[in-house]
Design a protein around this nucleic acid. Sequence first.
DNA 1: GCATTTTTCTATAAACCTATAGATTCTATA
DNA 2: TATAGAATCTATAGGTTTATAGAAAAATGC
Lengths: 216, 216
Amino acid sequence: MQTTDKPTTRYTHRHERAVAAAAAIFANKGYHGASTRDIAEKLGIQQGSLYYYFKSKEAALEEVCLTALRGYVSDIESIAHQPGEVESKLKTAIAAHLATYEHNNEAMKVHNEQRLYLPKERRKQLNMLGSRYRQQLEGIFCEGVSSGQLREDIDCHFTALSLIGLCNYWGAQLLRNPTLRPEDVTENCADILLHGCLARKAATSDIEPQTDTQVN
Amino acid sequence: MQTTDKPTTRYTHRHERAVAAAAAIFANKGYHGASTRDIAEKLGIQQGSLYYYFKSKEAALEEVCLTALRGYVSDIESIAHQPGEVESKLKTAIAAHLATYEHNNEAMKVHNEQRLYLPKERRKQLNMLGSRYRQQLEGIFCEGVSSGQLREDIDCHFTALSLIGLCNYWGAQLLRNPTLRPEDVTENCADILLHGCLARKAATSDIEPQTDTQVN
DNA sequence: GCATTTTTCTATAAACCTATAGATTCTATA
DNA sequence: TATAGAATCTATAGGTTTATAGAAAAATGC
C-alpha cells in the first residue's frame, strides 16, 4: 500500500487502471456476481495482488462509484452557474450527462445499478454528490420557472428527477448499443422534455391544472 | 415435483408463494447477492426443500421475471386495442405501467435490474414479451401521429422507449418510497411527456381573455 | 385406519470466494 | 552495483454456496 506523501505516479496510474478494471467487471457481472479473481485477471495479476490496491471488494465498489460521480457533478455545477437561456442550459446538461456515459460508461452504470449494495455508511459521500447533482439540476428548472421560460405549473423536483431517470436510461442504452449516437439521443431527450409530444392546437390555452404534490 | 395433469391447487398455491418470496429476496439483494437459503428462510422451509419448487436458482429468476411481464403485457395490449383519444390512452398506459409496480413491485424490479444475469437462452421468452410491450406502446404513438393528435416530428420508437425508461425509473422510486402516490406520479409523468416543460410563448391566457383573432 | 402420494427435512459433496501472511521479484536511486 | 522500498506471487484459512439423494413427515383418497 502506498503511504508516502508523494505518491508515485506509477502507483497512481496502476491504481486507476485497477479501478477501471473493477468498473468493467462490476458493470458486466454485477457486484455480487463478480469475483476479485475476475478483476485481477482483467488486470493480468493474481487474485491476492488486488488487495495491494483495494482494502476490500466493497472498497473497490465505492471507489468505482465515486470516480463515476466526481466529474459528473462538477460538470453540472459549472453548467448551472453559467449565464444563458434555461433552454440551452438544459440541453447542455443533458449532453453532459450522456457524455459522461461515453467516457466513463462502465463506472456510471455501476454507480446506478450496484451502489445500493454498499452499506449505508459507505454511501454517505456518494449520496452527497448525488444530492448536489440533483440540486443543481433542480435549480436550473426553478430558474426557468421564475424567469418565465418554463411553465410555471411544473414540479421542479419531479421534473429534475425525471430527467435524471431518462438520461440514465438512455445512458445505459448507449453502453449496450454502440450504434446509438449520443448527439441524437441528446437531441431527442431535450425535445421531448421541453416540448412534449402533443400536437400544438390553434388554441394555446390547453395547459392542464396540475396537482402539485411534493414528491420525495 | 408435481407431474400429474391435474396440478393440486395446493402445489400451485405454494409455488406462487415461492416465486413471490424469490422476487422479494432478489429485489432486495440482487440475484447474485441472494442465496437460496435466504429465499427458503422467507418461506419458512429449509434450503434444500426449495428445489422441490425450482429446478435451479436460475430457473427461479426466470420465473420471477416472467410473472412480472405477463400481466403487464396483456394490460398494454388491451389498452392499445381500445378505441379512444390517444392522449387518454397514453395516460391509461402510464397508469397501468405504474400500477404494475404497485401490485407486482418486487418482481418488476427484479425483471428490470436482474434479467440480464440470465443466460441468453433463458431470456428468449422474456425478450418476446418485452418486444410486444414496446410495439404496442409504439403503436399508440404512431396512431397519435397519423391522426394528428401528436406532433408529426416525434420519433415514435425513441419516445416509446423513453416512456418505458421514465416509468421504470418512477416505478423503482415508488417501491423505495412508500409515501409517493402512484396517481400523482402518473399525472406528472403524463404531463411532462405530453406537454413538455417549456412555457408557451404566446400563452398569456390565464389573464387575458382569449379572442379568436388572437392567434399565434 | 391404511396405503399412496406429496411435501419437507437432513446431510453432504464439490466448488468457489474473500482476505491475509510471508516469500519473492521488480524498480529506482545513491 | 548495492540497497531500500514497491509491487506481485503463492498458499491457505475459514467461510459460504448450489444442488442432490435418501429418509421422514404430512396430506390425501378409499
